[in-house]
Design a protein around this nucleic acid. Structure first.
Lengths: 233, 233
DNA sequence: CCGAATTTGTCCGTATGTATA
DNA sequence: TTATACATACGGACAAATTCG
């Protein structure tokens, strides 16, 4: 019964996956422990560990100390959405990138934004609006608030030449974030920018980023009509 | 200057990340090889390897044999979008799940679908339409095509009691996939289902899944107005 | 075009730590 | 409390890939 081949961790992973696919090990079932599998496969326990750890990270297995390893009940998929710089996103679409700063001022953000920037009432923040274009045509509109308490340098940066998008990834790398994708009806402003009917549905991506628990920025990106986000499972 | 602390791979990872954050190691720069770092940190090379591999998978580092390890030029973020069962998605919203099959028939799919199912012209496929509801109100409409050549059992399954969504994850686990997110204007049908104006923008998620290069299914999910997809960076 | 050197990738066997049933 | 199973560490070794002379 033993193929006895997989001396590599990828081989072990493939064999384990095969047993799950064929329901030899059914969802919810416990599988043998690392030591036993190492004996069966004729490899070191560390090799089995590497394979099982990989499958656990992929969501195929669930592991707990002492409880052992079991096949995940729902092969809960996760899709990975790439978040490139807007410049790269437009370049990947085969278009020439263009950028224009529309507005820059410090002001008191509206309550929902103030909450997400973790600011005290009455505190001001930096508000930027900008337009990113592809081959000269509007591609995505940016509406951003920056917490100047967390990123004081932002007050002195010149966002007419470099977009806040690019400035921030250099100034504050390794930020954590949260993304919300929704549909918004075009107001008169967006309708004018994108040349669509007011009320038309536009794809909106809102990102909130922070680092070490300190809020950095909140940005809403409104894409031109017909834009699609693509993700690999 | 050596903190000499990190005896664990997480410690090594933290220290490396700190050096990148502080631009001690700048984007594009090569960093010392594993052996040297192991000496500096006073740990085994395997421990350094574990840390650097983790950072590489996170997109922070780029590694190539012989060429060495360098700091990634663009901290290209990736967001992870959870893809739960629709049942779970609705349950997580705190709503009671409901399901109703609207239509089930075999037919020749339209060309775009036929392409993505990798079917020869004139070949038939299984076409399902269904409605998933939360607390009795329509939540998401499903329009699915199943390649019966790849999944012959689908012809005999009863999708009035179990949604194709749930049936497929059990029948064909570990499928690969591709997801596209876009906005679609509500037609008269969707407007009637969701009680919105015709032409209103609705969030649409299209998934294509396959396994071992064989196309399984193509599904378009149209969500009720106001729905938001949330993702962690 | 072809070796040689370098660097990462992975394996082994063992040992210890740690969460938990 | 104790035994179990996973998590991770070490050092040594070889393989594989790629750069470079």
């Amino acid at each position: 019964m033993s193929l006895a081949q997989p001396a590599t961790w990828q081989g072990v992973r493939a064999e384990v996956q095969r047993r799950i696919r064929t329901h030899q090990w059914a969802p919810g079932d416990p599988i043998p422990n690392e030591a036993d599998l190492a004996v069966e496969f004729g490899c070191a326990r560390a090799t089995v560990n590497r394979a099982l750890r990989d499958l656990a990270q992929a969501g195929v297995l669930e592991r707990k100390r002492k409880a052992g390893t079991r096949v995940a009940v729902n092969p809960a998929g996760r899709a990975v959405l790439r978040i490139p710089l807007i410049r790269d996103e437009i370049a990947e679409a085969g278009l020439a990138y263009g950028y224009r700063l529309l507005g820059s001022r410090t002001a008191c953000p509206p309550d929902p934004v103030r909450d997400r920037l973790d600011l005290a009432p009455g505190t001001q923040a930096l508000h930027l609006t900008a337009l990113h274009s592809g081959d000269g045509a509007p591609f995505v509109a940016e509406d951003r608030w920056i917490n100047t308490a967390t990123v004081p340098d932002a007050s002195r940066a010149d966002f007419t030449v470099q977009s806040a998008n690019e400035w921030l990834v250099r100034a504050m790398p390794f930020a954590e974030g949260r993304i919300e994708i929704s549909v918004v009806a075009a107001g008169s402003e967006m309708a004018a920018i994108f040349g669509c009917d007011p009320g038309a549905g536009l794809l909106r991506v809102e990102r909130q980023t922070w680092r070490d628990g300190r809020q950095i920025t909140v940005v809403a990106l409104t894409y031109r009509p017909g834009h699609r986000l693509v993700s690999q499972l």
